[in-house]
Design a protein around this nucleic acid. Structure first.
Length: 271
DNA sequence: AGTGCGGCCTGTCCGC
DNA sequence: TGCGGACAGGCCGCAC
């Protein structure tokens, strides 16, 4: 399940191979993804040079002079850089062929991912336009969280997973960040103290940064195109650990549901 | 505006 | 062993 650290890892892996490359063709075998793959991707991207490979939230952006390809991996999306004649696997939905003779192949079993195209600056695209700050932006801080959380009754966990508040905090890291900052996931966002918001902002940044650092170790496998994209084997402290003892206090990790999402927390450490 | 929920998908796991 | 059903998850889009 690609979260922000994984998408950033993918971006860093792809950038040196894609930057400056000319896209020679686009092959779409399955246009029914999260949204239909637009015809413009196939008509306007070929012939273009990829100038930059960027990331905004969990979206990958391939910038060209004519427009920007917007890619999202959803839950199960994978990108592999292969020689163009590599046999297809199940769920290989699209290829971007490159002048180098390689191709960027998109595989996504659940089809929650997306391949889009925009001629406008991508930050103006409807999907990107209303997003909150990147967790590593200077604009993201405890003070910011406190200000945005003001008067909000929704659970702290739901709050930090809201892309309009801050991007890139998926279910795993939301659980981990709340544990690291000692906050019960069900606490109303509006009731978090200044100190708690500070701790939470720091925890989100640190946990995502650490995951990106670990993601780097699996890069080689990913780019070789042979093998798994390499989900970071993080040492998770609460996620998926219900019934196991908390490493900090020994109490049993609890599981509940918050906003329809599996939620894990330590009743001793998180108040 | 904030909140809560349905829906999109398929692989995996569980119980019968 | 086979089969059906529950579940997982990001995140939009809708209704309130």
């Amino acid at each position: 399940m690609p979260e922000l650290p994984e998408v950033e890892t993918v971006r860093r892996g792809l950038a040196p191979h894609l930057t400056g490359q000319v896209v020679t063709g686009v092959v779409v075998r399955q246009p029914r993804l999260r949204w239909p793959v637009p015809e413009e991707l196939s008509t306007q991207l070929p012939g273009q040079t990829i100038r930059r490979v960027e990331r905004r939230a969990k979206y990958l952006l391939l910038r060209t002079d004519a427009g920007t390809a917007i890619l999202h991996l959803g839950m199960t999306g994978r990108l592999r850089l292969l020689s163009a004649d590599t046999p297809l696997r199940k769920h290989d939905h699209a290829d971007l062929t490159l002048a180098s003779g390689r191709c960027l192949r998109f595989n996504d079993s659940r089809r929650f991912g997306a391949l889009l195209w925009t001629k406008e600056p991508p930050e103006q695209h409807p999907l990107l336009q209303a997003l909150g700050p990147e967790p590593f932006d200077a604009a993201f801080s405890g003070a910011y969280l406190r200000q945005r959380g003001q008067d909000r009754i929704s659970a702290a966990k739901t709050f930090i997973m809201d892309n309009h508040v801050v991007v890139g905090v998926g279910n795993i890291y939301a659980n981990e960040a709340l544990f690291a900052s000692g906050i019960n996931p069900l606490r109303p966002a509006g009731r978090l103290t200044e100190a708690e918001c500070d701790r939470l902002a720091v925890a989100i940044r640190e946990i995502l940064a650490e995951a990106i650092r670990q993601g780097g170790t699996t890069l080689r496998d990913f780019i070789g195109g042979d093998g798994e994209p390499g989900y970071f084997q993080q040492s998770l402290r609460v996620y998926d650990r219900h019934g196991l003892p908390c490493a900090a206090c020994g109490r049993s990790i609890q599981r509940c549901r918050v906003g329809q999402r599996a939620t894990y927390y330590c009743p001793g450490c998180q108040r």
